[in-house]
Design a binder for these strands. Structure first.
Lengths: 252, 252
DNA sequence: CGTTCTTTTGATGATGCTCAACTGGGGTGG
DNA sequence: CCACCCCAGTTGAGCATCATCAAAAGAACG
């Protein structure tokens, strides 16, 4: 029975339906199997474990858990955060469909952060040991995996730049522009989208307080750069917003 | 002619002498060849290009350079920094012997930052394409490479934590403690070492100004936590310093 | 031994934080 | 269906931390 059939099985719920299949996944051009041929993608499918649902506010993994799987986000949004020695949490990233979770755990075989679903989500479990075996036979896969790890490194460097020497205005504008482009890459609107995270979470990520985020939103709204209704956001002037992130446009 | 012979060749300067050899390198237990056997290390030696000298204040590579090599630091210290759109630079890391430079460039085949020597240094050029070929035959090497990339990711996450919600005191203490442990791992004193970077560079890295760093140094000196003479540093009370980094000990 | 660059120290000020009160939307129970 | 509550978010006032500006002192270099 093919997986496509399984997915429409009249039985409704079906264990087979929970098996992941890269070829039928809308994210496969952004995710690990990018650039693979049919047969290679099939090999990858073989090692990918179950598809796992992660309800909102639930942990996918937790700091110090032993590392066995990477997770590809199939659906939904996550946040990853570290907890400092003094108990403060620092959000290190917001991840969306097509992105890979858990790469920071390879170095010590222990996860270095918590990963929590911001909404009901689904991930594909990828046993890392078996993935490494596959690398030997599919160089394309290996190369793309390296690109994804490298991309994570540069993403974090950009956040360091943001936290290290950008003003509150710039940080927030950069944050919105970043979200916008990631939604665009997924075929969604680059101008209208829902924030999946609270103001507090945005503030934490950007090294600011919830009050600052709230004020920032109000000001950008007043300046006609945004339309805001709760977590629904519309970017009215992406060009000026980018200029603001770059520090060209001063927000007054 | 063996490489060991080449190194002591009476001819003095000698092209062979500039060939790298992992087995004779004091850093090989920290660096890429960690855990490799004799023959595997030899294979790695085969692909490693020349050993390259990088004089102080010289760029090893520059942002937007096309990526062909990773670099293993054999000797010396480097800084990597990004330049923001507004022209500000943000130092993203200080690297020392045994560490790998250039991993952020894999994702786009272009370097994403500048790498500059903080003192006269030497690196081993590692052609990445050939390294990837080797991965197919030496799984241990591949696995360790993944660990090194992953380690870079967690390192950066720690910096995000530092920049995102630590006070100036905590940042600076964490910085010193980090240097200390890295020197310890290399067999140097964990309490006495030379800062290879200027106060300005420290400040830039930590998201602070040079004046703040200077004041911080003066205060820690007055409190008896440090001895400072120019760039020579002695940590007099590592325990309290760690407590300060953790936010337990308040610096008054 | 002068020149230049880095560092130190002091005085002042702005950005973003803290604390506090208020608003509004969504869910729940009467 | 409405009233109420609760939580997330908003707004305001005052304040702290760290930045900025300025000047002097000290190291490094030729």
């Amino acid at each position: 029975m093919s997986q496509a059939q399984a997915l429409v099985s009249p039985a409704g719920f079906n264990v087979q339906a929970l098996r992941s299949s890269c070829s039928t996944c809308s994210m496969h051009q952004l995710c690990l199997p990018m650039g693979l041929g049919e047969s290679e993608m099939h090999k990858l499918d073989q090692i990918i474990g179950r598809r796992r649902k992660v309800p909102k506010d639930t942990l996918l993994y937790r700091m110090d858990d032993t590392f066995t799987n990477l997770y590809a986000i199939r659906l939904g949004h996550f946040k990853t955060y570290q907890v400092s020695q003094s108990g403060e949490q620092q959000i290190t990233g917001f991840q969306m469909a097509g992105e890979l979770l858990g790469m920071d755990a390879i170095s010590t075989d222990q996860h270095h952060c918590d990963a929590m679903a911001l909404e009901d989500s689904e991930v594909c479990e990828i046993p890392f040991a078996r993935l490494e075996e596959l690398f030997g036979t599919i160089p394309t896969l290996l190369h793309h995996f390296h690109r994804m790890m490298s991309q994570e490194i540069t993403r974090e460097q950009n956040v360091m730049l943001l936290l290290g020497n950008m003003s509150a205005d710039q940080r927030f504008a950069a944050f919105l522009v970043n979200l916008s482009s990631r939604y665009a890459a997924r075929g969604y609107s680059s101008s209208t989208f829902q924030l999946r995270m609270s103001r507090e979470e945005i503030g934490n990520y950007l090294g600011l307080t919830i009050e600052s985020i709230s004020r920032l939103l109000s000001r950008l709204k007043k300046q006609g750069l945004l339309r805001v209704a709760n977590r629904e956001i519309e970017l009215l002037d992406p060009v000026r917003l980018k200029a603001m992130a770059a520090g060209t446009e001063v927000c007054d």
